[in-house]
Amino acid sequence: GCWSIEHVEQYLGTDELPKNDLITYLQKNADAAFLRHWKLTGTNKSIRKNRNCSQLIAAYKDFCEHGT
């Protein structure tokens, strides 16, 4: 299931919640338009490089609020 937004804000980028895991989750569960909008298409590695934690948190919040 979903992590809470508080959990993501607190732990994203740590061993508790690697950016990797959040990106994988969104790529698996969000639709193509969402991924394009948040620039989460492409390889996990390129996304990790190009999107910082606050951008990923914003995307995750949007996903939780509007889910697909």
Rank of each mutant, 00 (worst) to 15 (best):
A58D: 10
R51C: 13
E9K: 15
C53T: 10
H66L: 12
A33D: 13
W38M: 02
G13P: 02
A33C: 11
N20K: 15
R36P: 00
I57S: 07
Q55H: 14
V8M: 04
S54H: 11
S4R: 07
A58V: 07
G1E: 14
P18S: 14
Q55V: 11
L56Q: 00
T43I: 04
K61F: 03
W3F: 06
K45M: 08
Q55R: 05
C2H: 05
Y11C: 12
W3L: 06
H37D: 09
E65T: 15
P18I: 03
K45W: 06
S54K: 14
I57A: 09
E16D: 13
L40S: 01
R36G: 10
K39T: 05
R36Q: 13
T41R: 10
K49N: 10
G13Q: 02
H37F: 14
H37I: 08
F34T: 04
T43D: 12
D62V: 06
A59N: 02
T24K: 13
S54Q: 12
I5S: 06
G67M: 09
H66Y: 13
C2V: 10
L35R: 06
T24C: 10
F34Q: 04
E9I: 09
G13M: 02
G1F: 14
V8F: 02
Q27I: 12
N52I: 04
Q27W: 03
N20A: 15
F34P: 02
Q27H: 06
E65D: 10
K28F: 06
D31K: 08
I47F: 03
G13S: 03
N50V: 06
Q10A: 09
N20M: 14
E16F: 12
A32S: 13
K61W: 03
L12K: 00
I57P: 01
G67D: 11
F63A: 03
I57E: 04
G42P: 05
L35A: 03
C2S: 14
Q27K: 15
Q10M: 12
W38V: 02
H37W: 06
E9D: 05
G1S: 13
K39I: 03
K39L: 07
C2W: 14
C53D: 08
L26F: 11
E9Y: 06
D21V: 15
F34W: 15
K49W: 03
D62N: 08
K45V: 08
D31M: 02
K28Y: 06
K61V: 08
N52E: 08
A33F: 05
C64Y: 13
N52R: 08
D21E: 14
Q55T: 12
L26C: 01
K39V: 04
Q10R: 13
C2M: 15
R51M: 11
S4D: 10
L26R: 00
N50S: 12
L12E: 01
A59V: 12
T43A: 14
K61G: 04
G67H: 15
L40N: 00
K61R: 13
W38E: 02
L12W: 00
L40E: 00
K45Q: 08
K19D: 04
N50K: 15
Y60P: 01
L12R: 01
C64E: 05
L56V: 04
N20Q: 14
A30C: 11
R48H: 10
D62E: 11
G1L: 11
D31S: 05
L17M: 10
T24V: 12
T24Q: 15
N50C: 05
H7I: 06
G1R: 11
T68I: 08
L22K: 00
N52L: 04
D62L: 03
A33N: 14
W3T: 02
L35G: 02
K19G: 03
S46A: 10
W3Y: 12
D31A: 07
S54M: 13
L26W: 00
R48G: 09
L40C: 03
N29M: 08
S54W: 07
N52S: 12
Y25T: 03
Q55M: 09
N29E: 11
E65Q: 14
L12H: 04
L56W: 01
L17P: 01
I57T: 07
K39W: 05
L12Q: 02
V8Y: 00
K28W: 06
I23A: 02
L22T: 01
G1W: 06
L22H: 01
N20G: 14
G42D: 08
W3C: 03
T43F: 06
C64R: 11
Q27C: 10
I5M: 11
K45P: 05
C64H: 08
L40R: 00
D15L: 12
D31F: 00
F34Y: 04
S46D: 12
G42N: 04
A33M: 10
P18G: 05
K28P: 00
R51D: 08
K28E: 11
Y60R: 01
R51H: 15
Y25A: 03
L56E: 00
K19L: 08
